[in-house]
Amino acid sequence: MTMVRELEIGGTHTQLLVEELTRTQIVMYAGASGDYNPLHTDEVYATRIAGFPSVLAHGQLTMGLTARLVTSWLDDAVLTAFGVRFSRQVWPGDTLTGTVTVTAVGEQDGRPTAELMLITTNQEDQTVVSGYARVRGE
């Protein structure tokens, strides 16, 4: 793993976040988060009432998967901010890959800090979420 103080502007890290997302993982997220919206949990409702091709993942599930880009790459990072824009729906069977790019490095109260740009794409290389994170090394 990498330490925050080792980061350099322009450095990147790419990681597979989920391979062929399952309906079961969407159900796990519904159960853990408390968001039981039938668009995410009920294939019959999602297709016959809402008119979607299937259930779709919670945007927040994709955001949670995207957080792994930072927390599994940077050994000592404490997140101080994290934000995303949801740009495309995520469906069962999608494979998501995230890329993080270091956009700034600094120091605060004697501890290293960094600003990161995050992009998560699906198997067709379409962006599903994009955002930023700010981290501090411990």
């Binding site: 039938p38 949990t41 009920d42 019959v44 409702y45 016959r48 009432i49 945007g59 927040q60 955001m63 997140l79 901010a81 994290f82 934000g83 995303v84 824009r85 949801f86």
Partner: peptide, 25 residues
């Protein structure tokens, strides 16, 4: 409003759609 014996019903407030566009922490 999800499915049971039938496929479910449109949620209250149908006709407009509310989507999660951004989330920041």
């Amino acid at each position: 409003y999800g499915s049971g014996r039938g496929p479910g019903t449109p949620p209250p407030g149908a006709g407009t759609t509310s989507l999660h566009a951004e989330q920041h922490y």
